[in-house]
């Protein structure tokens, strides 16, 4: 199961009323949202959302039925047990970034709305504060950096300098290859927030 599906399932199962709902589902051949809501004493919309989520996860099936001319759904269980596993190694981006993203040329973007704070020793960046929005809606987002990330950003080319590949910056900064994933992570985040600009090398 991919991480997003697992997260959705986890969210469904963590509801206070989830166990009671499953008890109803296993007891009834099929049940509507209003029937379940009245049995559990919760709002019909809350019940409906949970049933829809379980249906999208292929734990329930739904069937459209009519009461007079009014259509509604009845839900029934299609599984007798739930088990899932998540492969965390797939989250590691080292393999993917080893070739293409390390060749990406980057530099600080012009007029980036960011403030770089240096460490006490002034030889690495300890945090980046990024301003987002305008006027009253303006907000700050602060990234506290790991030491390798801070060393890397300390050597990030200035806005008027020639862009340099991530590999070259890592070499200049003396950052170990084991830190590639966290470097790529912060670079991608700062690209999305318009602090760093990139071009393919």
């Amino acid at each position: 199961m991919d991480f997003k599906k697992a997260a959705k399932l986890g969210s469904c199962l963590s509801k206070d009323y989830a166990e009671d709902l499953f008890r109803l589902l296993i007891t009834y051949e099929s049940i509507s949202a209003s029937e379940a809501a009245s049995r559990l004493g919760i709002h019909i919309k809350t019940t409906q959302d949970l049933l829809e989520d379980l249906q999208s996860l292929e734990i329930l099936k739904r069937e459209e039925v009519y009461e007079g001319k009014r259509p509604y759904f009845r839900y029934s269980l299609i599984v007798k047990e739930i088990s899932f596993s998540v492969d965390l190694t797939r989250l590691n981006v080292v393999e993917k970034v080893a070739d293409s993203r390390l060749r990406m040329k980057i530099r600080e973007i012009k007029n980036a709305k960011a403030r770089f704070t240096t460490s006490r020793s002034n030889d690495y960046i300890s945090s980046v504060v990024i301003w987002m929005g305008e006027g009253r809606d303006r907000s700050e987002r602060k990234f506290n950096l790991s030491y390798p990330q801070g060393k890397f950003l300390f050597h990030l080319p200035f806005p008027t300098a020639e862009p340099v590949t991530i590999t070259e910056i890592m070499t200049k900064a003396g950052v170990d290859k084991n830190n590639i994933p966290e470097i790529i992570d912060i670079v991608q985040e700062l690209i999305e927030l318009n602090v760093i600009e990139s071009s393919q090398g």
């Binding site: 770089f116 806005p159 008027t160």
Partner: peptide, 11 residues
């Protein structure tokens, strides 16, 4: 060359 200022120190 405009818009080049940043408050970061430079090695």
């Amino acid at each position: 060359q405009p818009d080049g200022f940043t408050d970061r120190p430079r090695p």
